[in-house]
Design a protein around this nucleic acid. Structure first.
Length: 412
RNA sequence: GCGGUUGUAGCUCAGGGGUUAGAGCGCCUGACUGUGGCUCAGGAGGUCGUGGGUUCGAGACCCAUCAGCCGCCCCA
C-alpha cells in the first residue's frame, strides 16, 4: 500500500480548504451577477466525445487522456476539459428549446495525464462558463468581463488578457500550408519530432518559447492576412466591444489554443506569478462544436479557469490561509468543573454557538494553549468559585480582559 | 512523453563511508496548587522516500523505482 496521493494529485487540507470555499463562493457570486445557471456533468464520458471535439491530433487527446475500458467494454475517459460535456448535455436535454442565448457555469475536476510540476497536475479543478447561442461580439465581451470580475473579486492583480483571432477551419488550413512553405528550408534541419509537431499544427509554432523558433518566424506570413473577411470584421467588433466594456487586452498571435473546436476568437489570461505555467485561464468562441456533435448549430463562447493556478496567484498576491474561528473554548479550572463544561458545550451548540473543550481533561495551561490554537474568540472558565455561585468567567483572548458573569448570560 | 535536479523528525534543514542520526521551530509535561502568547528545565517523536547492490561497515557510494521541483512539450 502506498502512503502517497497518486502522482499529480493533491489533498486539500483543513488550513487550505476555506480558501477553496472562498474561491468557489466568489465564482458563484460572480455568476449570479451575470445571471448564469449551474450545470453538473459526469466525471467521465465516452472517449469519443473528447476525441471528436478536441481533435484526434490534439495533445490533450493524443497523449494526455486519462482513458480506460470499463467492465462493460466501454472506452471511457476522465473529463480533460469542461466544454464538450456541457455541450453533450445541452444537446441531450434540448436545453436550447428554452430559448437562446443560454448561460451556464460549472465547477469540476479535470484530468490530464501529463508530467506534473508546479501549477500542472493530473487532477486539477476548473470553473468555467459557456454562453451558448450568440454570435454577437458582445458575447466575447461578456465572458471576458465575467473572467475579470472573478479575478478581481479574488484580489488577483497584474492580469493580462491576451487575445487572438484564429479564423475558421478553412482559412487556418490555407494559412498552415503557407506557413510550412515559408519555413520548409528552416524546418528541414530540425529534429524529426519538431517537424512532425509543426506539420500536425503549424500555427502552434507561434506558441513556442524557443527563441530560435521565434527567430525563424520573423517575416513569416501572418494568420491575420489569411482570415475570411467575416472573421476579420468580427474580430474588429470584438475589440471594439472590449474597449467599450473597458476590458484591457493585448493582441497576441502566440495564442493559438490546443483544441480543434475553437473558431475566430481565442484568449488566455496570464499572470507573471505562475512561472512556466503562466495561463490562469483559456477560452474562446466555438461556433461549430454543437453542430459537430449532432446538435442544431449554435454559435457560442466559453472559458475555463484553473482554480489551483488562481490559488497560486492569490498566494503570490499575499493571500494567506487562515483556519476557521471558534466562538468559545470552554475551560475547567478545577477537576469538578468538567461535567459542567461538557454540559455547557451541549447547551451552546444547541443555541447555535460554536465551542470546543478538552477531551483529555488536561491541565489549565494546556487548555489555554488549545484555545489559542483553535483560534477561539473567548474562553469560558468554570472553577469551584463559578460552580458555587452559578457564574462563569469569560475572557476575551485577544485583549486578555476577563469578567465574571451570571451563567445565564452565556446562553442567551 | 524528453532533459535536469532534489528526497533525513509534523515543518525548515545540518550530517558527504566508521560507536546509540542532530539543530531550530512546532508538540507534550513541569517551574506556575485558577489563566494562553514571554522565559527556563525536561520529554515524546525517525522504515534517513522504497527496493536491490558494493563494502568488514551505507543516511552517505552504485543501480532501479516512487514522489516533488525546474526547463521543454502542452496547457488550467
Amino acid at each position: 500500500m502506498r502512503r502517497q496521493a497518486p502522482r499529480g494529485t493533491q489533498d486539500v487540507l483543513p488550513a487550505q480548504a476555506h480558501l477553496w470555499r472562498h474561491l468557489e463562493g466568489a465564482f458563484e457570486k460572480t455568476m449570479s451577477l451575470f445571471g448564469y445557471g449551474e450545470i453538473r456533468t459526469p466525471t467521465f464520458e465516452e472517449y469519443e466525445l473528447f476525441a471528436r471535439t478536441s481533435g484526434e491530433t490534439s495533445d490533450i487527446v493524443s497523449k494526455e487522456m486519462y482513458d480506460f475500458m470499463d467492465k462493460g467494454g466501454r472506452h471511457v475517459a476522465l473529463r480533460p476539459e469542461g466544454t464538450a460535456p456541457v455541450m453533450r448535455a445541452y444537446i441531450e436535454h434540448s436545453l436550447g428549446e428554452a430559448g437562446l442565448p443560454l448561460r451556464l457555469w460549472y465547477c469540476a475536476p479535470m484530468f490530464r495525464y501529463g508530467r506534473p510540476q508546479k501549477g500542472r497536475l493530473r487532477e486539477h479543478h476548473q470553473v468555467g462558463l459557456e454562453l451558448i447561442g450568440s454570435s454577437s461580439p458582445y458575447a466575447e465581451a461578456e465572458v471576458a468581463q465575467a473572467v475579470v470580475a472573478f479575478y478581481t473579486a479574488l484580489g488577483i492583480e497584474g492580469l493580462e488578457v491576451r487575445l487572438n483571432c484564429i479564423g475558421r477551419q478553412e482559412s487556418r488550413a490555407r494559412y498552415g500550408e503557407a506557413l510550412l512553405r515559408h519555413l520548409s528550408g528552416w524546418l528541414a534541419h530540425q529534429e524529426p519530432e519538431a517537424q512532425a509537431s509543426a506539420e500536425k499544427n503549424p500555427m502552434r509554432l507561434w506558441d513556442s518559447k524557443s527563441p530560435e523558433v521565434q527567430e525563424a518566424l520573423r517575416g513569416a506570413p501572418r494568420l491575420s492576412d489569411y482570415l475570411e473577411p467575416e472573421s476579420a470584421d468580427h474580430f474588429e467588433a470584438v475589440c471594439g466591444a472590449l474597449d467599450e466594456a473597458e476590458v484591457e487586452y493585448v493582441l497576441d498571435p502566440g495564442i493559438v489554443r490546443g483544441l480543434d473546436y475553437y473558431t475566430d476568437t481565442v484568449f488566455e489570461v496570464q499572470s507573471s506569478a505562475l512561472g512556466a505555467q503562466s495561463s490562469l485561464c483559456g477560452g474562446g468562441r466555438y461556433d461549430g462544436l454543437i453542430g459537430a456533435l449532432g446538435g442544431k448549430d449554435a454559435p457560442s463562447v466559453g472559458v475555463g479557469m484553473g482554480l489551483e493556478r488562481a490559488l497560486l496567484a492569490m498566494e503570490e498576491a499575499g493571500s494567506k490561509p487562515v483556519p476557521d474561528e471558534l466562538e468559545y473554548y470552554l475551560i475547567a479550572a478545577s477537576a469538578e468543573a468538567w461535567p459542567r463544561v461538557r454540559r455547557a458545550a451541549r447547551q451552546l451548540r444547541a443555541a447555535g454557538v460554536s465551542c470546543q473543550f478538552d477531551l483529555e481533561e488536561r491541565p489549565l495551561k494546556s487548555q489555554f494553549k488549545a484555545a489559542n490554537r483553535a483560534r477561539a474568540a473567548f474562553a469560558a472558565i468554570w472553577g469551584s468559585d463559578e460552580l458555587a455561585s452559578g457564574t462563569v468567567t469569560v475572557k476575551d483572548l485577544k485583549s486578555g480582559v476577563q469578567a465574571v458573569r451570571p451563567e445565564s448570560e452565556l446562553f442567551s
